[in-house]
Computed example of a mutant assay.
Amino acid sequence: MNKCPSCGYARNKDAVKCTQCGHYFSKVMEIISAEEAEEELLTFRGQCKRILKSGNIKAELLAEYKKFRDGLSRKGIFTLYLILAFIFLLTLSVL
């Protein structure tokens, strides 16, 4: 049996949260913060931060583009190029 660092209440070794004060123990907080950091890396904002923090932004952008392109099917690539061609033609017609 250990004690809660917040209130001193006796706690079970396997407990995640203090039953007296509701304080989460440090191991759980470490796991939660690690999961939040991992989720942050998967978001667009996290990817942009990682690219900007890298020493070689051009290489990171190319690596990110290759990862994106490898995740697309042939049909997805065709659709993407078709959309880009359509936008290009619309731009030319306006000029």
Rank of each mutant, 00 (worst) to 15 (best):
I57Y: 05
R11L: 05
L84V: 12
C48S: 09
E64H: 14
I51W: 00
H23Y: 08
A10W: 00
M1S: 08
L80T: 02
N56M: 02
V94A: 04
V16S: 14
K17S: 09
I32A: 11
G8N: 06
R69C: 10
R11I: 10
I32F: 04
L72P: 01
M1Q: 08
K66S: 12
L42K: 14
K53E: 12
F86E: 15
E36N: 12
G55S: 11
G22W: 00
L80C: 06
M1C: 05
G8L: 04
S54N: 13
G71V: 02
C7T: 09
D70Y: 08
R11C: 05
S26L: 13
I31D: 09
C7K: 06
I77N: 05
G46E: 01
K58W: 02
R45V: 04
K3Y: 07
I87N: 02
Y65T: 06
M29D: 13
S93N: 08
L80M: 13
Y24T: 11
F25V: 04
T91A: 14
E39I: 03
H23F: 09
I57D: 03
R11F: 01
G46K: 00
E39G: 04
P5N: 01
Y9G: 05
G46C: 04
E38T: 11
S26Y: 14
Y65L: 13
Q20A: 08
G46T: 02
L61E: 03
E64Q: 15
T19G: 14
L82I: 02
K58I: 06
L89K: 04
K75D: 14
I31H: 07
C18D: 05
I57L: 10
L72G: 04
A37P: 01
K75T: 11
I31K: 11
K66C: 10
Y24I: 13
K27R: 12
C18W: 01
K17H: 09
I31Q: 13
R74F: 14
E39V: 09
E64Y: 10
A63T: 11
I32T: 07
C4Y: 01
S54K: 12
I77K: 14
L41F: 01
F78P: 01
G46S: 06
A59E: 10
A34T: 07
L95W: 07
E40D: 13
M1L: 08
G76R: 05
E35F: 03
F86P: 01
C21A: 06
F44V: 06
G8E: 06
G8K: 04
K67N: 07
I57F: 06
K66H: 14
A34V: 02
R69M: 11
L80Q: 06
L72F: 00
I83S: 07
C48H: 10
R11W: 02
G55E: 04
C7V: 04
S6K: 12
M1G: 07
C48Y: 10
E39S: 10
R50S: 14
G8H: 05
L95P: 00
E35K: 06
E60V: 00
C7Q: 05
R69N: 12
P5G: 03
E38N: 12
S93P: 00
T19P: 03
K53W: 11
S26H: 11
N2M: 11
I83D: 15
E30Q: 12
V94F: 05
P5Q: 01
L72Q: 09
E64D: 15
P5M: 02
T43M: 02
G55M: 02
K17A: 05
I32D: 05
K66I: 01
F86I: 15
K17N: 09
K49W: 08
K3D: 07
T19K: 14
R69H: 12
